[in-house]
């Protein structure tokens, strides 16, 4: 079956309304870019899930990073999107105006190099991410250890996707199937989704990032639902192996242990955080930072993240809340649902 036939089929879908959740922010972006919603029947609803690790980072974590950035002889390094996430006292980028040293990095290896070159400065990495990014931090730490580098620290806020999906399945039983993230799955493989599919009796299908990939996955989920099937499948076979990346999984196990983690908007999810085992490079990260309830009053990130509402249903959307003046983290990140909807809204 080619893409045209898939589209034809999805356009003419006339079964009961279906709600499919795309978990990954890059999928959300791709769905908008390629106009997939207009190619399929309105009875197939696509909703955006918890998508991006930056969007679910609690304000207390930003505050902790800001504390380092304000310290003498310290430089905080992080990925771009983190700079604009609001903390209690403004974002890292706001704080730069008040003397904070917060700079962009492209990879954790760059942090190791900078620490090696400037032993008088303490480099602090705000290490956010899902399973895709965790192994890179672990490799960087191994590199730093071998080289005897001491002026480097990791403040981690690393999270795993599967416990969040379980929570969504428990609380949102009306979601009929999941479009699973491609690059997280490169690391974790298909087994964790097989367990979810068996437990919650819903299809979980791994997708690549082209429109054709996503359409194929939607088609597969619709077909499974029609037939009453609930299987996990991998339709991103040129990148995702069934068993994931074993070396990456081993290095995650070697350096991290699981623990409860706070997801902005969702609350604390058991075993969804990865914390460095006690090594000199760890400062405790987001462990125990569970005081994050302070999303600004009207912000509905909580409902956006679990797909209960679309971003444009939030009363602040495009009014008080815009990418240049974000209220909630979902508006900040390049892969946050609110930001993507905003950039693609019809004027």
């Amino acid at each position: 079956m080619d893409t045209a036939a898939v589209i034809e089929n999805l356009k003419n879908y006339d079964g009961p309304e279906l709600k499919l959740m795309e978990v990954c922010g890059t999928h959300t972006a791709s769905i908008f870019k390629s106009g997939i919603r207009s190619m399929i029947s309105p009875a197939i609803k696509l909703i955006s899930g918890p998508g991006c690790p930056v969007c679910v980072t609690p304000a207390a974590y930003i505050d902790k990073c800001a504390g380092y950035a304000m310290k003498k002889d310290h430089i905080l390094l992080t990925f771009g999107d983190m700079m604009k996430v609001p903390g209690t006292d403004g974002s890292l980028s706001d704080l730069k105006g008040r003397g904070a040293s917060a700079e962009l990095m492209y990879s954790p290896f760059e942090a190791v190099e900078r620490a090696a070159a400037h032993p008088e400065t303490m480099f602090v990495v705000a290490a956010v991410g899902f399973e895709t990014t965790a192994p890179a931090y672990a490799l960087a730490i191994e590199d730093a250890k071998v080289r005897g580098i001491k002026n480097l620290k990791f403040v981690t806020a690393l999270k795993t996707v599967i416990p969040a999906l379980s929570l969504i399945c428990e609380n949102q039983p009306d979601i009929d199937g999941f479009i699973c993230p491609g690059h997280v799955s490169v690391i974790i493989g298909i087994r964790p989704y097989e367990r979810l599919a068996a437990k919650y009796k819903k299809p979980f299908v791994i997708a690549g990032f082209e429109a054709e990939h996503i359409l194929a996955v939607i088609y597969d989920i619709v077909r499974q639902t029609k037939k009453g099937e609930a299987r996990a499948k991998n339709l991103y076979g040129n990148a995702v192996r069934e068993q994931g990346n074993i070396k990456a999984l081993d290095i995650i196990k070697k350096h991290f242990e699981e623990g409860p983690a706070m997801w902005r908007g969702l609350g604390i999810i058991d075993r969804s955080g990865l914390y460095l085992k006690n090594e000199g490079y760890f400062d405790g990260g987001s462990r125990g930072l569970d005081a994050d309830i302070k999303l600004p009053g009207e912000c509905r990130c909580k409902d956006v993240i679990v797909g209960r509402i679309n971003p444009d249903e939030c009363p602040m959307f495009s009014k008080g809340c815009r990418p240049d003046a974000p209220w909630g983290p979902c508006m900040v990140s390049g892969e946050g649902a609110c930001g993507i909807w905003y950039r693609n809204r019809k004027a």
């Binding site: 990925f79 492209y106 990879s107 954790p108 290896f109 760059e110 991410g129 895709t132 990014t133 192994p135 890179a136 490799l139 690059h183 490169v186 690391i187 040129n238 990148a239 995702v240 192996r241 990346n245 990456a248």
Partner: peptide
């Protein structure tokens, strides 16, 4: 290779 955060995470066709 598929590269994320300065790290190759998989070999591709």
């Amino acid at each position: 290779v598929l590269v994320h955060a300065g790290c190759a995470i998989e070999v591709m066709e």
